[in-house]
Design a protein around this nucleic acid. Structure first.
Lengths: 246, 246
DNA sequence: TGCGTTTTCTACACGGCGTTCAGATTTCAT
DNA sequence: ATGAAATCTGAACGCCGTGTAGAAAACGCA
């Protein structure tokens, strides 16, 4: 029996030697797992292979993660967080007023990250790990909400122009998930439910082409998907009442 | 050593008893594999499990498929074909002149099939099977081209109205894959390269929301993705210069 | 300092997987 | 009827995740 919550409180200024080693080993496990995923796809994440690379036995990893699926869940969360951070970083230098350019930069940053980290993309949005079953509530609810909130922020900034274009159908707050609604109403109080629907559509719209490209379905069709994707982004910006940059 | 091309010519009116048995067994292997995929996800496709269900040994399947990946490739092709046939069937009763309604029906048929066959969708568009490596040229080039041609046909029918909306960027035939270009120029000679780019964008646009929904990323955000998806389809129809039905 | 507890790790076992191979059996063409 | 080809079994190999028992190491406290 191993108490996996050994690092219970970190009130101690000098964390015990054990805690330091444990943190380091945990970090190494995750790093090697991500290396394997990057090299041979997310399915290459195997406890035995990781342990082999670390000079350990497979069983030893169970001192750090109760099961392989927990390791995968942790990885999904970290990778998803890396994605949202990459997008946020790309968005940071763009002034909040320039809603159109922010959408463009967001879309391009998302695609750039996905193409640079295909294994991570598949880990987040696909089913690539053999028998992996995500915990209830999804594998990475927090990063997913954060990602969704970023898109919603883009819509909120553009809402004065976008609102007239979204008169087709009416939405209620009750149409959406409680956690998302709470975050949106807190961060963007002026945004109506229709704005959330638009954000989800924009998320899906970018996800589609990027997903097709990452999984190799676009390569046989078009030699360079970049202009097609760029055209889609510009069209999306135009379709919500903004004038695209350039 | 087994000659896997035993059914070389079917000029014989009465196919030999062997050939009949072989065809039946092949059919059964694929059917059981698809059952397993539908039940436990595409990753549940295992030669041992299939053989167990058939009262055989795993090795026996190697008389019908040289390797597991070949079986998977065959399944992907058949499932992809089923998808294009489902979409074509839904499209059949809609008159060719009603370009807007055809796009709407196409989009809804695609989503309906994906939701009814999530395992098939993941098989086609995802990475779900453990160590599967697709053959060069993709796992299912023919059905993929057919699917792509269907979308292009929708664009071709709408091109008189759509053309003015697609003036942003110019495309050349050389931007696209040779096989796709050949099929398009043969079937829709009046369609310029920009029409193919628009078709790819429409493909991606629908793929995005459907993919997010199938993989469960939309469920936590919106209780019923149908209206969001419908709004996206209507917006897409509008964005190419058509007036949406209803 | 030394002792008892906790954590970490090894060694082994179990059942699952794809794949290969020798050999038995069945079917077919001649 | 005979020889060739196709089909299938059963055992093996090495991979996998997951447990369990027990050894070894590090720790906290007296």
């Amino acid at each position: 029996m191993c108490k996996l919550s050994s690092v219970r409180d970190q009130r101690q200024q000098p964390p015990t030697r054990r805690a330091r080693l444990r943190a380091e080993t945990t970090r190494e496990i995750k790093a090697i797992a991500l290396d394997h995923a990057a090299a041979g796809g997310p399915d290459a994440i195997s406890l035995r292979a990781i342990a082999r690379d670390m000079g350990m036995t497979a069983g030893a990893i169970y001192s750090y993660f109760p099961t392989r699926d927990d390791l995968v869940t942790t990885l999904i969360n970290e990778v998803y967080e890396a994605l949202t951070e990459a997008v946020s970083a790309a968005l940071a230098p763009v002034p909040p007023e320039d809603a159109a350019r922010r959408i463009l930069v967001w879309g391009e940053a998302f695609r750039a990250w996905a193409l640079a980290n295909p294994a991570g993309f598949k880990l987040i949005y696909g089913d690539a790990v053999s028998g992996y079953r995500a915990p209830e509530g999804g594998a990475a609810p927090e990063p997913e909400h954060r990602a969704c909130t970023i898109v919603t922020g883009l819509v909120a900034a553009a809402w004065p122009e976008a609102a007239p274009t979204q008169s087709g159908r009416t939405y209620e707050w009750s149409d959406f998930g409680a956690a998302l609604v709470a975050a949106v109403r807190r961060e963007y109080p002026e945004l109506p439910p229709a704005g959330v629907a638009l954000a989800l559509r924009m998320w899906g719209r970018t996800h589609g082409l990027v997903s097709l490209e990452v999984y190799g379905h676009l390569g046989a069709m078009v030699h360079d998907p970049a202009p097609v994707y760029r055209a889609e982004l510009l069209d999306m910006i135009r379709s919500i009442g903004l004038t695209p940059p350039e």
